[in-house]
Design a protein around this nucleic acid. Structure first.
Length: 870
RNA sequence: GGAGAAUUAGCUCAGCUGGUUCAGAGCAUCUGCCUUACAAGCAGAGGGUCACUGGUUCGAACCCAGUAUUCUCCACCA
């Protein structure tokens, strides 16, 4: 039977994914096995698969597949996030295309469109996850706005309210004029922007004198409530107690004093605009200033501005500058760089705005959440994130949880005609509440605002198991707390911290044990991959090009935990090549004719060596997994397969051309092959499953799949066997090297003589002859003159060439080696003759140095003898 | 401005509590091979003052201080 020369992934991928799914391998229900649970960070319903998802979900899949193969009850819960702002923005934009204005719709009409959109596009990303092999329990797929999850959110709001964490208040919030909603501090991205610093002259009332202030926002002068100077500033001391006139509108405002003003910056005078700047607001509160809000929700000027009503803030800025120039109150304009906040979701410049919002008090909630991480009960991987987590948790401000949107969980608060309010789950309960408080319930109306998306995502590890509404249920009891969370460091505070807070508040337990923080996927130039830069490859296309296994391997090869990943397609190429290597190893073994016979001695030796080497690698890999060093685990697997299995083991047992292989050895080779497939399966699920079912390995019943095969367990191994074989490998390499440097064809067999003093090479004879292409192998007890000699370990080897050897070159080579060893010996001697070293160093270290010394002396002796014999 | 991290081969990174011949891996490069599993391959080789300067130590890539560069987070002065 002939098999294609290269592995073509496409067919295998479709075939095996549906096979796994149809046979229920991804499904999990509670039983008496140990559970291993991961909840997927729910991608936004608006999302399409990008490289970040690819990395993140590959890691989760590797962890879950390995756990499954280790016999744990592995459960990976997928789902999507409603993402209020992003989704609402998307729906609004779509409606606009159709010529529908959101304002013309009722809330219910709009939500109708939004749900329609969600049904149509919300599942795209999940189906894309299937392409990368994600072995999620799809029957558990959840959406943050599913009825049961929504109820959990509402219940939580009410619970938090009753516990006194939730309050209403007027606050300066980050207003997104495009999304027309408040956003949290964490959703504001600060960017450095080239701006202009305008120097504006304010006339002192009753005087011809002007006071100059510097501002980047001239359009807000109509909202000025005061001019502030530093009380220690002698330049302005004569102005204390006076008032000035706001240019263009001539409103009178006081000059106040506060040390907040820095004398060195600008002119040392500050215009105070409480409605449009956080610091100014605080100054305003302190000095009891008037708050004049001149902006509409969309960022345009309102009638309080008196002029330019209806103009957008940025257009107004330019116009005001012009108007000021006309009345000669614009002193000068300078270029100026400063940080401006932008909305993460809409990229609109954030406007500080005063408004009535709902808040969650964080002080008491954050403390236990910090303790989990501090005590190590929750481990952040890599650890370096612990300190920034601590810093954030200790300085956390109250969380603004209301959003002026429709898409999301509507806040369960109810107002009566007098704008008095109660918090209740339903209108009926609200009415009852009003009655109880002796208040009117006439004109009862629910709060229009919805909750911040993260309020619901914070419940995710609980709500996917219905643990908020029904904590006694079997699933929740079994799967919660979950084991590992794999997510991006960017949302450590947004999301991870809030899950810990909410998980603790409900269950008194941490929602997970380990948080694996992946790096950010960057391009070769180190830039973050983004749609706007167009530097992000489409993972689906990549998978088409290199195969899913290839891309998975490519991603993991380059991403130690927490390190950003400089993505380069060549990693995928390496992954594809690796897949192909395994494929071809299979072709080799598969193509052998068999003869019913026991293994030869050489084959038995090879098997023994490989078995030990395999167990050594398994131990290494296990260690790497324990430390969440997935790229190292993969690299160990890669080297075990490519170097040890293919390059050494298979070459050792390979029968001569057109000769059959001994049946016992073939069986052994097949056994190893299957163990290797199992080991590689978490990384390369499709290729390994495809090969697993080849006839070579015998017939399998339908549930016998590598996805549920036993993952190789850690077993003891004999290191001396591995070490001894390393000497054999070294001899083979040396002989090949001699051929290479002397330009002798690999086809020419060479004689080899070994002066073996430490190792018994008899069991390696055939292997040496085969892999080094030796004509005659002899064991000698004395020097051989006229041959090229080399040391393998402490064994001296000779290769006699037909031509006379170049004595001078040999002499030089050996001398160099002696020189190096002498240098080494000197450094060792220096240590050993240093009394303080012998006294202070650990005994085993001293012993080691003594061994090193003895070794070097032995080698030098042998080499010196060789030199003499030349 | 505050905090944290990083700097090791051309690239991406290992190097655990200072002590194995410790200066490593993979990729890339170079040389020779279309050897009947695989040129997506085989064999071999070359590449580094461990950012810099001091210090601690018997001993430093590793610990400490300073300098330079880079990155991340937080806070910001109009």
């Amino acid at each position: 039977m002939s098999i294609a020369k290269t592995y073509s992934p496409k067919e295998a991928e479709n075939k095996w994914y549906s096979y796994w799914k149809d046979n229920g391998f991804f499904r999990s229900t509670p039983d008496d096995r140990e559970p291993y649970t991961i909840v997927m960070p729910p991608p936004n319903v608006t999302g399409v698969l990008h490289m970040g998802h690819m990395l993140n979900n590959t890691i989760q899949d590797v962890l879950i597949r390995r756990a499954r193969m280790q016999g744990k009850n592995a459960c990976w819960v997928p789902g999507t996030d409603h993402a209020s702002i992003a989704t609402e923005a998307k729906v609004v934009a779509l409606l606009k295309e159709k010529g529908i204005d959101k304002k013309s719709l009722t809330r219910d009409e709009f939500l109708g469109y939004a749900w329609e959109w969600k049904e149509k596009y919300g599942g795209i990303i999940l189906s894309q996850l299937e392409k990368l092999g994600a072995s999620c329990d799809w029957e558990r797929t959840k959406f943050t706005m599913d009825p049961d999850l929504s109820e959990a959110v509402i219940d939580t709001f009410i619970k938090f309210y009753k516990e006194g964490y939730i309050y209403r208040g007027i606050r300066m919030v980050n207003w997104d004029p495009q999304g027309k909603t408040a956003v949290s501090d964490e959703e504001v991205i600060r960017k450095e922007v080239n701006q202009k610093l305008y120097y504006i002259k304010y006339q002192i009332k009753g005087s011809s004198e002007f006071l100059t202030i510097a501002t980047t926002r001239p359009e807000t002068i109509m909202a000025d409530a005061a001019i502030c100077i530093n009380p220690n500033d002698e330049r302005y001391s004569h102005l204390k107690g006076k008032t000035v006139l706001v240019p263009l509108i001539n409103r009178e405002i006081p000059i106040i004093e506060d040390t907040y003003v820095e004398m060195e910056f600008g002119t040392g005078c500050l215009k105070v605009t409480p409605a449009h700047d956080l610091n100014d607001y605080e100054l305003g509160v302190k000095h009891n200033l008037q708050v004049i809000d001149i902006l509409n929700d969309d960022g345009s000027l309102n009638e309080k501005a008196e002029i330019l009503i209806g103009e957008d803030r940025f257009i107004a800025r330019k116009k005001i500058a012009k108007l000021l120039e006309e009345v000669e109150q614009l002193d000068k304009v300078e270029d100026y760089k400063s940080q401006v906040g932008f909305s993460e979701r809409t990229d609109a410049a954030i406007e500080p705005k005063l408004s009535m919002q709902w808040f969650c008090k964080m002080e008491n909630l954050s403390k236990p959440a910090l303790d989990y991480v501090q005590s190590g009960e929750i481990k952040l991987i890599p650890e370096k994130f612990t300190s920034s987590y601590k810093h954030w948790m200790e300085n956390v401000k109250d969380w603004c949880i209301s959003r002026q949107l429709w898409w999301g969980h509507r806040i369960p608060a109810w107002y009566n005609e007098h704008r008095e309010w109660v918090v209740a789950k339903t209108e009926a309960e609200a009415i009852a509440q009003f009655k109880q408080e002796g208040k009117s319930f006439e004109g009862i109306k629910q709060e229009e605002d919805v909750l911040d998306t993260w309020f619901s995502s914070g419940l995710w590890p609980m709500s996917v198991f219905d643990g908020v509404r029904n904590p006694e249920n079997k699933d929740f009891q079994y799967y919660y707390p979950t084991n590992d969370l794999v997510t991006a460091p960017e949302i450590l505070f947004f999301w991870v911290a809030r899950m810990i807070i909410m998980g603790h508040d409900y269950t008194g337990k941490a929602p997970f044990q380990n948080v694996y923080l992946t790096g950010i996927v960057r391009d070769k130039l180190g830039r973050k991959m983004s749609k706007s830069l167009g530097n992000s490859p489409d993972p689906i296309e990549l998978m088409g090009k290199y195969g899913t296994d290839g891309v998975r391997v490519g991603m993991l090869l380059s991403s130690p935990a927490g390190n950003d990943l400089m993505f380069d397609e060549s990693y995928c190429e390496q992954g594809r090549n690796f897949a192909n290597k395994i494929w071809n190893a299979f072709r080799l073994v598969n193509g052998w004719e068999v003869v019913d016979a026991p293994s030869t001695d050489a084959q038995q030796t090879a098997a023994k060596w490989f078995e030990n080497r395999f167990n050594q690698a398994v131990a290494e890999i296990d260690e790497h997994f324990k430390n969440y060093r997935l790229s190292d685990a993969l690299m160990s697997t890669y080297k075990l397969i490519w170097d040890d299995y293919c390059a050494w083991y298979l070459e050792l047992i390979k029968p001569a051309y057109q000769s059959p292989i001994e049946s016992e050895t073939l069986e052994t080779a097949k056994k190893f092959f299957q163990q290797i497939l199992a080991l590689a399966h978490p990384f390369m699920p499709f290729l390994t499953e495809e090969l697993w079912h080849e006839d070579l390995f015998g017939s399998r019943d339908e549930k016998d799949c590598v996805i549920v095969a036993q993952f190789p367990e850690v077993k003891p191994f004999d290191e001396t066997i591995i070490k001894e074989f390393e000497i054999v490998q070294q001899i083979i390499s040396e002989v090949r090297n001699i051929r290479n440097t002397k330009q002798i064809s690999p086809k020419v067999a060479l004689p080899l003589a070994i002066n073996a003093t430490f190792i018994d090479f008899t069991k390696y004879q055939d292997s040496l002859i085969k892999l080094a292409n030796i004509s005659t192998l002899t064991f000698v007890r004395e020097k051989i003159t006229g041959a090229v000699s080399f040391l393998a370990g402490k064994e001296e080897c000779y290769v006699a060439l037909e031509d006379n050897i170049d004595v001078d070159a040999e002499r030089e080579r050996i001398s160099k080696e002696i020189e190096y060893l002498n240098g080494f010996l000197v450094s060792v001697d220096k240590k050993l003759s240093n009394e303080r070293f012998v006294q202070n160093a650990k005994p085993e270290v001293v012993q080691n140095e003594q061994n090193k010394k003895a070794d070097a002396e032995t080698k030098i002796k042998i080499l010196e003898e060789s030199l003499a014999s030349l």
